[in-house]
Design a protein around this nucleic acid. Structure first.
Lengths: 327, 327
DNA sequence: ATATTTTATGAAAACGATATCACTATTTTT
DNA sequence: AAAAATAGTGATATCGTTTTCATAAAATAT
C-alpha cells in the first residue's frame, strides 16, 4: 500500500492524503473517504520514504558496551520507556566493550538512520572526544562525565567516599580495594579517589599491595580477591567498586573459610538485585540506573525538539544501603 | 554528501558511482577518481534512500517482553552477536509484557523498517497466531514452540521432569510447586507437566494446596513461598519454575528460619548468575539462553538469504546443575 | 571477416512520501 | 464594498539511491 493507491481509492489527490496524515486542510467529505480507504487497506506510510523527505527517522541509536549486564540493561529499560512514550524507536549498538566497535557504531548512527544518540560510556579517550564533537546529531552520554557533551552520571566520588568511610569508621584496620582501570573515569578513577580520600581522612593508609584492578565480572572479583588475600592475608575489609566484583570476592572469601563480616567486611556499589539475596546481604550504594536512562532520554528528546539548547549535565545521587556484609 | 556530489567531483555519472559502490563495471581510471572523492569527503550512502529502492533495510526487529531480565538480555546478546556479524542492525521493541505492545511492535516492524523479526514470546494466543501468520517478513519465535512458525526453544518438559525426579528421588515427602500461569506454554504448562509426571512416576501425589502460580519476579517467589508455607507448613521441597522465583522463595524460607536444604530443598530452572552465588548455591537446570539467541538469529539470516526455506524448529537441551540447595 | 559476448558508459525512471506552489472559494476584517 | 485572511485543492519537484535501458567500444568466438 502506498499513498497514491490510497489517493486513487478515495478519489482525492496524493497531497490530500498527505495532508490528512499530517493535519493539513482537508474537507470533511474527503477526510471520511480517506479514512475509509486507510481503514480498509491497513495502509501505513513508509517510514523510509518519510525519512527521505523530512530527514527525520524517529529512531534513536543506543550504544552500549554489553547488553547482558544488569546495570546496563536497567539503563536501557529506562531509555526504552521514555523513548517509546515519545514515539521513538530504539536502534541498539552492542559493542562488546570494544572501542573500534564503539566508534564504528557512533559513526554509522551519525551518518544515517538516527535522529539522536545515547551513548553508555566506559573508557573515554581523545578519539571519543574528537568523534563525539564532530557528530551531527545530538548525543547524550550516560555513566560518564565529560565537559564537551550532555551527560547523566552518578556521584561516584561521594558514593565511594561515603562507603569507604563506613568501613573506616568500623573496627577495620586493613582495608583492601578491588577496582577497575582508571581509564574508566567514573568507576576506575572517581571511586578510587573517593576511597583514598575517605581513608586519608580517617588517618588510614592506602597500601599498594591491597589495591588491585580488574574487570567488571564475578570472575575477576573472585580472582582478584584471591590475589589480594594471598598477598595480604590480614586484610579485614574489602571495598569493591561494583556489586558484581564484591559478589565474586564473596565467593572466594567463603571458599577459604572467611566469615563475612566477622573476618572480612565487604562492600560494593550499584545495588544489583543479587546483592540483597546474598548471605549475608551486601552493603552497597543504590544507584539509579533506570532513572539515568530515563533522564538521558529526556534530555535527548528535548534537544531533538530544540537543537539550539545548550548541553546539559545531570548528576544523580545514590543511597547507602546498609546490610549484613559490614561489621 | 550525496552520490551526485561524488559523481560531480569525480567527473563521472551517478550511475558509475553507484556501480562502484555495488561492484558493477567501472574502468580503473574512474574507480580511482571515485575512490579519491569518497575518501576526501567521507561519503556514506544514505541507508534510507537505499531502502527506498531496494526494499532491504539491513535491520532486524527484536520484540522482547522486558530488557532488564537476565535470561532475556542473554538471549539478546546472542542475537546481537550473530546479527552484527552479518552486518545487520537491531531495532528493539520492549513490550513490558503487554500484549497490545507486542502486537503493535510486530505490526510496526512488519509494515516498515525491518527485513525480519525475532520475537521472544511468553504468552502466545490466537491473536498472535493470526498476526504472525499474516506477517510479510520472516519471523523467528524464541522461547516458545508453535507449529506455524520457525522457533528455537528449550526442552522445558524434560528439564522440569528431571529436576522434579531429582527431588522425588531424595528423602522428600511433600513437594511444593511455584509456577506461572499456563498461558505461558513453555514455563507455565510444560514445566508443570514435567513436574507432575515426575511425581506421578515416583508414586507421589501432586497436591493442589502445594501448587501456586505467580510472576517471573523475586517478589512473586517470596510472596508465593509465604503463601505456600503458611498453607502447607510441612512442605519439605520446593520446585520453582525459574531461578528468580527460587531465589525469592529462598529469601522467605531463610527469614522464617528454615534451613536449606535440611528443612526444605529448593530447585529452580534457568541457571542465572545469581544462583551459583547463593548460600547454599541453587540446584538448577542450565539453559542455553545466549545460544538460543544465536541460533534464532542464524535461522532468520538463512531465511533472509533464501525466503523459500521451510520453517525450522530447534529444541535446545539443558544441563542439570547439582548444587547445595537439595538434600 | 563476421557474429557474439564482455566491458563500459550515462540518461532517466523508479521507490513513496512531503513541501512548495499556484489557484479558487469562502469567511472575516477593515 | 474592498481587502485580507482562512480553507481547500491538486500538480509537481524533491529527497538519494538503484535499476533499466540504450548505446558503443573492445575482446572473444565462430
Amino acid at each position: 500500500m502506498t499513498i497514491s493507491e490510497i489517493a486513487r481509492m478515495a478519489e482525492v489527490s496524493v497531497s490530500a492524503v498527505s495532508r490528512y496524515m499530517n493535519g493539513g486542510y482537508v474537507s470533511d467529505e474527503k477526510k471520511e473517504r480517506i479514512r475509509k480507504a486507510i481503514q480498509e487497506t491497513g495502509y501505513v506510510p513508509s517510514a523510509h520514504a518519510q525519512t527521505m523527505r523530512t530527514k527525520r527517522t524517529k529512531v534513536v541509536g543506543v550504544v552500549i558496551p554489553k547488553i547482558n549486564s544488569e546495570s546496563i540493561s536497567r539503563v536501557v529499560a529506562g531509555i526504552s520507556e521514555e523513548l517509546s512514550k515519545a514515539g521513538y524507536e530504539l536502534l541498539l549498538g552492542n559493542t562488546g566493550n570494544n572501542q573500534e566497535q564503539e566508534l564504528r557504531y557512533l559513526r554509522i548512527f551519525d551518518q544515517n538512520r538516527v535522529d539522536g544518540i545515547i551513548f553508555i560510556g566506559t573508557m573515554m579517550n581523545k578519539e571519543h572526544e574528537k568523534l563525539l564533537k564532530s557528530i551531527q546529531v545530538p548525543v547524550v552520554l550516560l555513566g560518564q562525565q565529560e565537559s564537551y557533551i550532555s551527560c547523566v552520571y552518578h556521584d561516584d566520588y561521594h558514593a565511594a567516599r561515603e562507603m569507604a568511610s563506613l568501613l573506616a569508621a568500623g573496627p577495620h584496620k586493613k582495608i583492601g580495594f578491588l577496582g577497575v582501570p582508571a581509564r574508566d573515569k567514573a568507576v576506575g578513577k572517581d571511586r578510587y579517589q573517593g576511597f583514598c580520600d575517605a581513608l586519608r581522612e580517617a588517618g588510614m593508609p592506602v597500601e599498594d599491595n591491597r589495591v588491585l584492578q580488574g574487570e567488571f565480572t564475578l570472575e575477576s572479583g573472585y580472582e582478584n580477591a584471591r590475589t589480594l588475600m594471598e598477598r595480604a592475608p590480614d586484610t579485614d575489609a574489602l571495598f569493591c567498586v561494583t556489586d558484581t566484583i564484591a559478589i565474586g570476592a564473596m565467593k572466594y572469601l567463603r571458599e577459604i573459610g572467611k566469615q563475612i563480616p566477622e573476618d572480612v567486611s565487604l562492600v560494593g556499589i550499584g545495588d544489583t538485585r543479587m546483592s540483597e539475596m546474598m548471605t549475608p546481604p551486601l552493603t552497597t550504594a543504590h544507584y539509579y540506573y533506570k532513572t539515568s536512562g530515563m533522564e538521558g532520554a529526556k534530555i535527548l528528546l528535548e534537544k531533538l525538539k530544540n537543537p539550539d539548547l545548550p548541553d546539559k549535565k545531570m548528576m544523580l545521587g545514590y543511597e547507602i544501603i546498609r546490610r549484613g556484609s559490614v561489621l
